[in-house]
Every structure is written in C-alpha cells, then in structure tokens.
Simulated assay, not measured.
Amino acid sequence: MTTQQSPAPTSQWATNSPVEQAFFLLRTVFTIAPIAFGLDKFAGLLTDWEDYLAPWINDLVPGSAHQAMLAVGVIEIVAGLAVALAPRFGALLVAAWLAGIILNLLTMGEYYDVALRDFGLLVGALALALLARARHSATGR
C-alpha cells in the first residue's frame, strides 16, 4: 500500500502571506545587492575592491588585482540575474559565492567583521533557496 502525500497548501503562497513576503524580500535583496556590488567593481564608488582580494588568490588569477575584481563584478552581476530569473538555483550560486568571499577574507587575516556579515548573508541566501524550492513545488513558479 502506498501513501500519497498531500501537496503543500498553496495558501501559504498567497500574495499577502508572510511566507510569500519573505520570499519576495529575500529574492529582491539577493537580486539587487549582487548586481549593485558587481557594477561597483567597474565604478569604484563604494570602496577600493582590490584591498579585499587575498594575495594568494591574486597570485592564482591572471592579470592584476583590478582585472580580477572586474571579473568578480561580472560574476556578481550574473549571480544577481540568476536569482531574479531562477531563484532556486541563483540563491545557491550566491551562497556559494559568499562562501568563497568568506574564505578569501578569513585567509587574509583581516576583515573578520565583513566575513561575519557575509556569513549572515550566506544563511539568508540558503533560506531563499529553501523558500524558492518549496514555492516551486507548491505553485510551479
């Protein structure tokens, strides 16, 4: 005898539900923030991004630290767009990217405060991935 699981109630995904609102907030921030930070790698308005690149990573990548940060900017823009278009996968991409940033910062022996902040963001990205997967299962969106 097989048991049939009942589908997740779609009422939790109603437009005004707290679950849907949490999904919308997380999806918005993990779309906008990576795109904004990625664009700033080209504009340099927020900070000198090269200061945050661990020397051992700079030694691994071809070119200068500035060129590496431009590549990072492109990756961040792509990650933000992935969250906007496919949050189930984009959120995991952002989480993995944040893990890489944390590793970079910890191995520098500096910017522990930024690494801790990015850990919080990583947890938020994982929460978005979980919500997106549940939402997709319940609604097909």
Rank of each mutant, 00 (worst) to 15 (best):
V78A: 15
D48I: 12
Y112N: 03
L103G: 06
A54W: 02
N104H: 03
T10R: 14
W13T: 03
L70F: 11
P55H: 09
T31G: 08
K41D: 02
Q5P: 09
N58A: 15
G38W: 05
R88A: 05
G124T: 01
P34W: 00
L70H: 14
Y112M: 02
L25W: 10
D51S: 13
A79N: 14
L45V: 11
I57R: 15
G44I: 13
F30E: 09
G44R: 15
T107A: 09
R88D: 07
P55G: 01
T28I: 03
T2S: 11
R133M: 05
A84Y: 10
W56G: 06
N16F: 12
R135L: 10
T47Y: 07
V123P: 00
T2F: 03
A138K: 14
A96G: 10
L60Y: 05
Y52A: 13
E50A: 10
T28H: 03
V19R: 12
L85I: 15
W49G: 08
L60G: 02
T107I: 00
A65K: 12
G90E: 14
T31W: 13
S64F: 09
P18L: 02
A99K: 08
L122V: 05
A36T: 04
A54P: 04
L53D: 03
Y52E: 03
V72Y: 04
M1I: 13
D113F: 15
G73W: 15
G80T: 08
L116F: 10
P9E: 05
L53H: 00
D51R: 15
L98R: 04
I102M: 09
T47N: 12
H66G: 13
F30W: 04
F23L: 12
R133E: 13
E76I: 07
L92E: 07
Q5I: 10
L39K: 08
A65D: 15
F89L: 10
G124K: 08
L25D: 01
T47Q: 11
L122F: 06
Y111K: 06
P62Y: 04
W49D: 12
G80P: 02
T31P: 04
V29T: 10
R88S: 08
F89E: 02
V114C: 01
L126Q: 10
V74N: 05
R135K: 15
L81R: 08
A65F: 10
L26W: 05
P87K: 01
V19S: 09
Y111P: 00
P18I: 08
A96R: 06
E50F: 01
A82T: 10
A14M: 07
V61E: 02
G100T: 12
W49I: 03
